[in-house]
Design a protein around this nucleic acid. Structure first.
Lengths: 344, 344
DNA sequence: CTGAGATCGGAGAGCGCTCTCACGCCACTC
DNA sequence: GAGTGGCGTGAGAGCGCTCTCCGATCTCAG
């Protein structure tokens, strides 16, 4: 098979069907305003030739690309430890597919890549962008906003508080955290500790805030800083145990952290949940179901969040031209649910 | 900000720099054959205007897209349980980025999507494809081969045995399995059992073959079929324990399976590794490090595999036109390594 | 100082498509 | 039976870029 088999063009289809290019174009793009018999003839010609429109030529004139960039900043952190992004990607993919858009994946790693991504987005290769940027001080969101590309963020960007105009989809980290802590209190626990996530991420900050919402007067020594990893969880748990040997419950910022904490508790002879109740966050199945005991945790519907992000973006692209504001929600917060297993 | 800010074109840059379009084009594409002072002037104009080439226009004439599709079939299965694809994507992304190619992600879910993907690939929107298709009976690989798009497969496609011409990158599943079993034997174990993966996937078949390479005469009752999930691992482990209560070692087809097996063993009062040694496969960190005891397992360098896939594809795209054959490896098998923790 | 050879820069023709216009043809009205 | 809409169709002009000529310029030997 020579790879020089030239793809059929509109012209070729038109010739075969005995009509003009314009008519073929009309049929290919929906067929409005073309009489039925002609539509049939064109369709047949398209099939016969195996014609597929050349997207490049089309974009050149329409200035639409039917493609959306998904930018994931600093994959090293969380992406690869949990199915978080995979699930979200799946949701995004489903929604984009349903609307005939392509998904261009941009993984960035460090500062150099930011410029590259900024340039790419500014270059108008895609119609819009879905951006995951976990860190508060990440310059990427700013860059992207500057590029003038319609964007929806996954997770609340760190600087979104004051200003409006930023569209994002986030889980109800704060509400979920409140629910977790209240659950522990409902179990009769009186000395609840918290292991935070990496506090340069809004999700960690929000979860800490949720903890404080419920326990505003908690001894500050009952809060230890973690980093969303099992190792961080272990370290923080040791600290907590040293500082407050009498604690009877731990709310960990995520399941990985909880797994680390669980190990330290066992090692130090504390029974879970009898002596110390433990609750996680995320409902990362591969972890939460495997720990001993299985982890009670807060679940977020990640796939739905992804789907929603895509839907929001596409609505903006198709619907209102660029007016923005009007009718575009600024932030959408998805509910979380408590999943009871055995650890609390 | 109105979204109608027209992007600068080559023409505009040329005008500002006081040269012709052709010269700007040359500078933008490497600058060969243009005198230094002019190059400088053009560069300055490009910067000043923030010019970015219009990829659509470029593709239209060059017939290159600088984009590669990554097709992941049936994500529900494994993708979301482990960081397997995430890591591979990262490797792919790194390599593509380095060569200025974009990554177009195609997630498929069920048969309908196959047609869509086939059409997309045949449509010549991308220069090549990297395809992950786990299942032996998946029609997708055939479809894609038929589309005439240069393709590299991730994992050995089920039907690649006889025919040549299929390029793929795979881990040494069979060799890794042999190493795992030999390790158990080296520990003095004499009744080694195996829990397979989902046998409609080549990786599972290869691992089983590796087991049999070392233990060709093993009692067939010491092999139980799993499905790469913890639940499958539990079920298979119970079966094995019922059939062969005297087994002293288990080689599980992956870490998730091993985790399930571990749970059943503990539940039935077998000590690991004293009574029964357990070894997994994949070195899925979130699992292998968290189990009790931590899992001894076989590691594969997934990220490197991804990078290699991309490199192979790009080499084919850039290098030899379409001759294929010549110098193109058909299958590349990456080595695995044994990671010793406590379970064996 | 001239001419040959080498090199650099510019004009222009498309790539395959969409979309605006203008025209032709029909049904229908008076 | 001629006039008048209105719908369907085709012609043609680009979208922004690359790349092939070909003419202009520069260099250097004779």
């Amino acid at each position: 098979m020579t790879d020089t088999a030239p793809r059929p063009t509109l012209e070729a289809v038109a010739a075969l069907a005995g009509v003009s290019r314009a008519t073929v174009s009309r049929v290919v793009n929906g067929g409005d305003g073309v009489r039925e018999p002609l539509v049939q003839r064109v369709r047949r010609a398209v099939d016969e030739l195996g014609y597929v429109p050349n997207q490049a030529a089309r974009s050149l004139v329409t200035k639409r690309h039917d493609a959306v960039a998904v930018v994931i900043a600093e994959p090293e952190t969380r992406v690869f430890a949990d199915p978080f992004f995979a699930l979200q990607l799946r949701g995004i993919s489903k929604e984009l597919t349903a609307q005939d858009s392509q998904l261009v994946l941009l993984l960035t790693e460090g500062r150099d890549d930011h410029a590259r991504v900024g340039r790419y987005l500014a270059g108008g290769h895609v119609d819009g962008a879905l951006v995951f940027s976990l860190h508060l001080d990440d310059p990427l969101p700013g860059l992207i906003q500057g590029a003038g590309v319609p964007t929806v963020f996954g997770g609340r960007p760190g600087w979104s508080d004051g200003r409006g105009g930023v569209t994002y989809v986030d889980s109800d980290n704060r509400g979920g955290a409140r629910e977790a802590v209240r659950h522990l209190i409902g179990l009769g626990r009186e000395r609840v500790a918290h292991i935070t996530g990496a506090l340069d991420q809004t999700s960690a900050v929000d979860r800490l805030d949720g903890f404080r919402d419920v326990l505003p007067d908690a001894d500050p020594r009952r809060v230890a800083e973690g980093d969303f990893t099992p190792a961080g969880g272990e370290r923080a748990m040791r600290e907590l145990l040293a500082r407050c040997p009498d604690l009877d419950a731990v709310f960990a910022a995520n399941d990985l952290t909880a797994a680390g904490a669980l190990r330290v508790l066992r090692e130090q002879g504390r029974r879970v949940p009898d002596d110390v109740a433990v609750i996680g966050f995320d409902d990362m199945l591969a972890v939460a179901e495997q720990t001993d005991p299985p982890l009670t945790t807060i679940r977020q519907d990640i796939e739905e969040a992804g789907r929603l992000m895509a839907r929001l973006l596409l609505r903006r692209l198709n619907g209102c031209g660029g007016g923005g504001g009007e009718g575009m929600p600024t932030g959408v917060v998805l509910p979380t649910t408590l999943v009871r297993r055995s650890s609390a």
